[in-house]
Write a protein that binds this DNA or RNA. Structure first.
Lengths: 207, 207
DNA sequence: AATTTGTTTAACAATTCTGTTAATGGCAGA
DNA sequence: TCTGCCATTAACAGAATTGTTAAACAAATT
């Protein structure tokens, strides 16, 4: 059975190397030989396992999207129902930021490589809508009741989601750059932004 | 004098085509033959005028950065001194968004292609610091006095700038995607975000 | 008109990168 | 032990892309 483990190791090694290469350099900037080298295999092996660069790329997209969706649903599931609406939004937002920060190139990769392509986008929309559909209706209800109960200052669901995603994605994307400009570590910058994002959202939701 | 005009036209045509190609596809995704084709010249001409793809790319960076810096300084200069601090921030923010929206691929291009490269980043930092240095000190003073006069809820300059840039950049980057998801036009989405960003910043600055 | 200068073209050279193939080696089951 | 299958390698083929060159050409200058 050592073969199967070996096979998985080679496949896994290539996938890991490919993820790093594609995320940091984009599809056209990525080199299959560089991926093979990083994975410690000959580049013929890469073609043997994944046939083409495109197919390998699709595999990466699949897992990346899956992880992204999981991060959202997980963060949402972990919620404490006893918390106020405001506290729950902040909790989800922070959990989501933690995930994104672990792969800081992810947002710009998504915006640059995935979303502009209509095909990739359709693919994602399908996956996301099936996975996030129920979450979306739940959110809608929760938000509506919060709006109706006058717990919060009125806001639409798209704008609330957009606020959260926007702030988190921008924090991740700009962290490398901004920390360089401000002469602080990336971690310090992210901590500052986390605090600031929380202030922004809380004030936004307060009446 | 027709020659000089012709020369400028060819150069300009190549630069325009290159800007479009580089911004939408990134450096490695861009093809010099595609640029030449778009510009309506043979691809040998491209090399005649700019020698290499790299040099052409640098030219694009230069103008893009210049325009970006100009947009900020112009927006800042146009300010009405009689306005409150809050109103001035909002005015600058909106002016800046209008510029970015005109080139929606710009932010992701900057984040993907320019900022990650240490060389490009240094180049920009130099240009920006000489152009934005005095603006920065002005801003610092204005913000300090606003903080001291307790006009606004206390905030640091880096976080205020980060808030504004972050919200604007994210609005531009996500506009194409978000409008598709929400089944509205890009313009409608941008208008919604503009309103929402203004609400966010105003509430943030209110005590 | 001849010369010079700078522009343009077409063909080609060189490189880089992706993808293929034929040969090799090891291992499991007959 | 032999056979067949799978993984692996090295060398190669093909395509795409960047960059060069030599020759033609046009316009201005002498």
């Amino acid at each position: 059975m050592a073969e199967k483990e070996d096979k998985m190791n080679v496949e896994k090694a290539i996938l890991d190397a490919a993820t790093e290469e594609f995320l940091s350099k984009g599809f056209s900037g990525a080199r299959t030989v560089a991926i093979a080298e990083k994975a410690g295999v000959t580049h013929a092996m890469l073609h043997y396992y994944f046939r083409t660069k495109e197919k390998l790329f699709e595999c990466i997209i699949d897992t990346v999207i899956k992880e992204l969706i999981d991060s959202v649903t997980e963060a949402y599931k972990r919620q404490d129902a006893s918390l106020s609406f405001e506290d729950r939004v902040v909790a989800v937002m922070n959990a989501h930021l933690d995930f994104i920060i672990a792969k800081p190139q992810l947002p710009s990769f998504l915006f640059m490589e995935i979303f502009p392509s209509t095909e990739n986008f359709k693919l994602i929309k399908e996956k996301a809508s099936s996975a996030l559909g129920s979450l979306n209706t739940q959110l809608k209800e929760t938000l509506e009741s919060a709006n109706n109960n006058e717990e919060i200052d009125n806001i639409s669901l798209p704008m609330l989601i957009s606020d959260v995603v926007t702030l988190n994605a921008a924090t991740a994307i700009s962290s490398q750059l901004a920390s360089k400009i401000l002469n602080i570590t990336k971690e310090e910058y992210v901590a500052m932004r986390k605090q600031e994002n929380e202030i922004l959202i809380r004030k936004r939701l307060k009446k």
